[in-house]
Design a protein around this nucleic acid. Structure first.
Lengths: 262, 262
DNA sequence: TTATTGAGATCGGTCATACCATTAGCTCTG
DNA sequence: CAGAGCTAATGGTATGACCGATCTCAATAA
C-alpha cells in the first residue's frame, strides 16, 4: 500500500529484504492494520496460514511468536491463535519494561517516580475532560474506599478502579497504557503490603481530594493532589518494607524502596 | 557432553509452570537478572545452549525469539545471539505501541499529547536535577539550532539531541524510555516535514526558553516552555500536513493531524 | 426434550534432522 | 606485514512427525 514509511530508522516492517520470519511479522501486521484481522479474531491454523504466506510452519511460528511476545497475538494450544482482544482500554505488555528493569537495575523508587509523573499527567487531563459519568464513578470508588477501611483487599480494588477511571477520563489511551504498564510492575509490591487502617483512611482522603479537584475542573489542583497521594503511598510502602526487612532480621528484604525491581 | 557448564545453566524439566518455551524465557531472564549474562555478552550457540537447558533447538529458538521481539536479545546470523547492549539510555521497542496504534486507530493528535505530557514531565524533573554538563550540552544544541536555520536536516539532529539531553537530565530512565517510545513513532511524520525558516527560528527560540528555565532550576517554567514548544510544533505540523493534503488535491493525506498513525 | 458424556477432529507445542546463508577468524599468498 | 580468500562456526529455514490440549458434535441418559 503506501510507501510513505521509508524511514531513516530501519523499523522491522520497512525492511522487505530482511529475514523470512520478519517478513511474516510484516504480513501479519499489515493484515491487522488493514482490518482483515480484528481484535478477538482467530487466525487460520498454522499449517494453512503457512501455506497461504508461502513459508514453512517453523518460520510462521517464529513470526507469531514475535507478535505474541509483544502482546498482539495469543496462542492457545488446541484452540488457535487469536488477535488479543482488549475489552477495556488497550494495554501494552509490561514484560519488556520488566526485563529492562532487570537489565539496568531500576529501583522501585525510579518506577514510583515514573508512575507519579504519568498519574499526574492523566489527572491533569482528566480535570479538563472527565465526563459526568466518569466523575460519578470516581465518587463511588472513593465512597467504596471509605467503606472498606477494614478490608485492605477490597480497598485495593476500589483504589485501582479509581485510578483506572481517572486514566480513562484523561481521554488519552496512550498515556493510560503507559501508566498501566508501569503500575502493573509495581502492583506485586503493592498487593503484598497489608496497610494499616490509619494509612487507608489517609489514602481515601487523598483520593477524595483528587476527585474534588477533577470535579472542580482544576488541573493544577488535581496534579498536586495526585502527587501528594502517591508520595504518601510511596512513603508508607517504604516504611513498611523497612519494617518488614527489620522484622525478618534483614534477611531478603530486597523489595524495599531502593531494591531492584524483580 | 561436558559437565563444565552445569553450574551456570540449569536444566529445565523441574517444575514447569507454563509451556517449555516459556520456561526457557524465564531461565534466560533469570540468567540476565542474576548477571550471568550481561549486556553485550554473547549467548552460547543455539545447539549447545539447547542441550544445556535440556530442550530442543526449535523450543530454545522460540524463547530467544520472544526475548528478541521485546528488544532484550539480538541474533545475527553467522555471528551469534547477544544481549542487547545499550550504549546510552535503555530503550524500549516501539513496535508494540505502533501495533496498538494500528489496532485501536490512535490519532497522531493523541500521540502528540502523550509525548507532550512525557516531555513536560521530564523537563520538570530536569530543572531539578540537570548537571552542569547536561546544561552545557543543552546550550550547545540550542546554539547548533540557531546555526542550522537554513539546514532543516541538521536542525532536526540538534532538536533531537536537545530533547534527548533533557530526558537524560531528568534522571528517570523509565520516563526517558517511554518518551522515546512515543517520539520514535512520531519521528516519521516529523522527519518528512520540511520546515520553513521562520518556524525553525521560532522553534530554536522555544528551545532556548526551555534551556533557560532548566538552568534557572524552575520546573514550572520548564514545563510551561516545553508545553508551548510542542504545541507550536504540533500546530506547525498540522498546518503543513493540511497544505500538503491540499496540494495533493486531497489525495491520501492520511498523515495529517487527525489521521491514523501508520 | 434437555443435559451430559464421550470420541473423533482440530490445532498449537515440541522434537529431530537436514540443509542454506551469513559471518568471523584464520591461513595463505604477494 | 597486509590483504584476499577459504573454512568453520552459527543462526535461519524447511520437512516431517508425534504429542497433548481443546473444541465440536453426535449419541446417550435423565
Amino acid at each position: 500500500m503506501t510507501d510513505l514509511n521509508n524511514d531513516i530508522f530501519k523499523t522491522i516492517d520497512a525492511e522487505r529484504r530482511g529475514t523470512t520470519s520478519e517478513e511474516v511479522v510484516s504480513q501479519l501486521r499489515e493484515m491487522i492494520h488493514r482490518g482483515e484481522l480484528r481484535p478477538g479474531d482467530r487466525l487460520p491454523p498454522e499449517r494453512d496460514l503457512a501455506k497461504m504466506l508461502g513459508v514453512s510452519r517453523p518460520t510462521l511460528r517464529a513470526g507469531i511468536r514475535s507478535l505474541a511476545a509483544v502482546g498482539v497475538l495469543q496462542s492457545r494450544q488446541g484452540a488457535g491463535t487469536f488477535v488479543v482482544k482488549s475489552d477495556g482500554p488497550p494495554s501494552l505488555d509490561s514484560s519488556p519494561l520488566r526485563l529492562m528493569a532487570s537489565l539496568h537495575g531500576f529501583t522501585s523508587a525510579e518506577m514510583f517516580e515514573a508512575r507519579q509523573s504519568l498519574e499526574m499527567a492523566v489527572a491533569g487531563l482528566a480535570a479538563e475532560r472527565a465526563t459526568d459519568d466518569q466523575m460519578a464513578t470516581m465518587a463511588e470508588e472513593t465512597t467504596g474506599m471509605f467503606a472498606s477501611l477494614d478490608d485492605p483487599e477490597q480497598f485495593l480494588v476500589h483504589d485501582m478502579h479509581f485510578h483506572q477511571t481517572v486514566a480513562a477520563a484523561s481521554g488519552n489511551r496512550i498515556l493510560t497504557s503507559l501508566m498501566n504498564m508501569v503500575s502493573t510492575i509495581l502492583f506485586d509490591v503493592r498487593s503484598k503490603t497489608v496497610k494499616r487502617a490509619r494509612d487507608l483512611k489517609e489514602s481515601a482522603e487523598m483520593h477524595r481530594h483528587i476527585y474534588r479537584a477533577i470535579r472542580e475542573r482544576n488541573p493544577e489542583a488535581a496534579r498536586k493532589a495526585m502527587r501528594e497521594h502517591l508520595m504518601l503511598a510511596q512513603k508508607a510502602q517504604e516504611q513498611e518494607a523497612a519494617e518488614d526487612a527489620a522484622g525478618r532480621n534483614g534477611a531478603n528484604g530486597s523489595n524495599g524502596a531502593n531494591g531492584d525491581v524483580h
